[in-house]
């Protein structure tokens, strides 16, 4: 039993180190954002919120933030509709090739983003799609669909369809049973899928980079440009705000579905 204990102590130690390792960049970023100097020293010699003020005066920031949120919302909504329909077909249907469809719809997740971007760029040129906004939107539906498909398929295949029968015998018509029983029970699955799809779209760099122009830049691209042109702690301030936003979203997600479900991979 000594070895068993040793094994437990060892894994616990590694896990503790991993937690520190994973949280370090986040903590560091937040600390640096409150420095008063122009360099990224730690700990800051003096605390200040000047970089948050500086952040708000960068004129390029707001349009790119708006664009990213807009693209993420619309593409997630489209993916929710297409992905849910497809998940219903795969889980409830009785036709050959269901597993192949499932794999295909999830596969953009496993393909290198840059390669998808390059390939799409060539196709869009071929068909004459030059509008940056439209191109971004089309591309981001491809990015978000796998997340929706994966979580909705998982929760749909766990759904107990006798609940619908029960609702019907208790006086609900079929459409009403879907609305009253299926929708609320599946809501956590939809929410998790939509959450990760939204974050993936907000975060995407390797595909978006091929479809931006001088006026249409998503947030990650704008931030990378800031970093290359004039790196100062205002980037840390922006990152901190994004981290805060993510924490808020995760908190809501935890309230609604629970962290353990978010971790289901």
């Amino acid at each position: 039993m000594i070895t068993e204990r040793l094994f437990n102590v060892l894994t616990a130690t590694v896990a503790a180190l991993v937690v520190v390792f994973l949280l370090t960049p986040i903590v560091v970023t937040i600390l640096v954002s409150f420095t008063s100097s122009t360099v990224f020293t730690l700990p800051p010699a003096e605390w200040s919120t000047r970089w948050y003020a500086r952040m708000t005066t960068r004129p390029e920031l707001w349009p790119s933030l708006m664009l990213s949120v807009e693209i993420a919302l619309i593409s997630t909504a489209i993916s929710l509709v297409l992905g849910t329909l497809c998940a219903i077909a795969v889980v409830r249907g009785r036709f050959p090739g269901r597993e192949a469809i499932q794999t295909f719809v999830v596969s953009p997740l496993m393909m290198p983003g840059l390669v998808i971007g390059v390939a799409m760029l060539q196709l869009f040129r071929e068909v004459g799609l030059r509008d940056a906004y439209a191109s971004l939107l089309v591309a981001h539906v491809v990015i978000t669909m796998p997340y929706v498909m994966r979580t909705v398929t998982a929760s749909l295949s766990l759904f107990d369809f006798s609940l619908i029968d029960a609702a019907r015998t208790l006086g609900c018509s079929y459409p009403k049973a879907l609305l009253k029983v299926m929708a609320p029970v599946l809501a956590p699955g939809f929410l998790t899928g939509a959450l990760f799809a939204f974050l993936a779209s907000m975060d995407n760099y390797p595909i978006s980079i091929f479809f931006t122009d001088a006026w249409t830049k998503t947030l990650p691209i704008q931030m990378l440009q800031f970093l290359e042109e004039q790196p100062d702690p205002s980037i840390a301030a922006m990152s901190s705000c994004l981290i805060l936003l993510t924490v808020a979203v995760l908190f809501v997600g935890d309230r609604l579905v629970g962290l353990r479900r978010l971790a289901d991979f």
Partner: peptide, 9 residues
């Protein structure tokens, strides 16, 4: 129902 089909929500 056999598995009771109670509404989990």
């Amino acid at each position: 129902f056999q598995n009771y089909a109670l509404f989990p929500h």
